[in-house]
């Protein structure tokens, strides 16, 4: 009968509404378990036994992000010494699939390399959030930040993060990655001992402001506000405009290359017969296909009739 489908459809919606209320009542005061109240809003985790709606009212409510969530990388520095963990070894720059990490290794006056970055850029508009840099960094220096609200008005330089913008203290990292932080405690103790031996005196400038910030909650504030973005990039002069054009080798230009209308390759054997006009790709005539289509409908109707659920098709 026509119309039952519509009623059923409305029934679905009604059922959903009721289920949502029931869910709510069962979980007074809030329908979400383990809700975290922060200055940014409620942080929620979706329960698996919910029968009602799943929607979250972003930005007042946010989902609780799992520890492994990855967005854009951040660089961790030791909070107590102010030293970067990064040694400018370059592995992250090599492993980065879209090649959006740029590192200038620091050097002393004689030009000998020092194991720390002088400059470090991540082009966040190119970064594909794959997490390889964090996965393969041998010094646990680069980690994935959870801050996903990165919108700016310009791509350049707004989305080119430099060393200052990327740097976060270890406490921030510990707050974001509690489990990993726990697991790495032992390794850190060893490393701290090593670090003491070869301690560097000079903390990089510009870190002080970031270090004063309190340990971040699961949803972080932007570091950028604390450290205004200077743009030191000593860019090499752009290539002369005309040059790439002149260098171009040319190549085929016509969309159909010459030779396309030329003769078929000589073959002693005849090609398979061209399907006659009006056949489907495997050579079945359309008339037969039309018949098959009709039969299919008929078969279906009969089956429905046998089931006693006839529909008008």
């Amino acid at each position: 009968m026509f119309g039952t489908g519509i009623l059923k459809g409305l029934g679905v919606t009604l059922k959903r509404t009721v289920a949502t209320f029931v869910d709510d009542l069962a979980r007074v005061p809030s329908r979400y378990t383990s809700v975290l109240e922060t200055s940014q809003g409620k942080i929620l985790r979706q329960p698996t036994d919910s029968r009602g709606i799943f929607t979250i009212q972003y930005p007042e409510e946010r989902r609780q992000l799992p520890e492994r969530f990855r967005y854009i990388p951040m660089l961790v520095y030791e909070e107590d010494t102010g030293e970067d963990r990064c040694t400018a070894c370059g592995i992250c720059a090599k492993v980065c699939p879209p090649q959006c990490i740029w590192i200038v290794r620091d050097q002393d006056e004689k030009g000998k390399p020092i194991t720390r970055p002088a400059e470090f850029y991540i082009d966040a508009s190119i970064c594909m959030s794959c997490g390889f840099c964090a996965e393969y960094c041998p010094f646990d220096a680069i980690k994935m930040n959870h801050d996903y609200e990165l919108a700016t008005y310009d791509r350049f330089p707004g989305l080119i993060f430099n060393l200052q913008e990327l740097s976060v203290p270890t406490s921030y990292y510990a707050a974001l990655y509690p489990k990993e932080w726990e697991a790495g405690a032992e390794a850190r103790a060893k490393k701290a001992a090593r670090a003491k031996r070869s301690a560097r005196k000079k903390a990089p400038a510009g870190k002080a402001t970031a270090a004063e910030k309190p340990a971040a909650q699961a949803v972080a504030e932007k570091k950028k506000e604390a450290a205004p973005a200077p743009k030191p990039a000593p860019e090499p002069a752009p290539a002369p405009k005309a040059e790439p054009r002149a260098k171009h080798a040319g190549g085929h230009w016509s969309p159909i290359p010459e030779g396309y209308s030329g003769p078929l390759i000589e073959s002693e054997l005849p090609l398979p017969p061209v399907p006659a006009e009006g056949t489907s790709p495997s050579g079945v005539p359309w008339s037969r296909i039309m018949k098959l289509r009709e039969q299919q409908l008929l078969r279906y109707r009969q089956r429905r009739k046998a089931e006693g659920k006839e529909v008008k098709l």
Binding site: A88, V95, C96, V104, F156, A233, E235, P236, A239
Partner: peptide
């Protein structure tokens, strides 16, 4: 990849600057 311009002298350069 990896491109040589990224490390150890990876002075950032905007890709758009390199082409006409």
């Amino acid at each position: 990849k990896p491109y040589k311009s990224r490390w150890p002298k990876g002075h950032y350069q905007w890709a758009e600057d390199r082409v006409p």
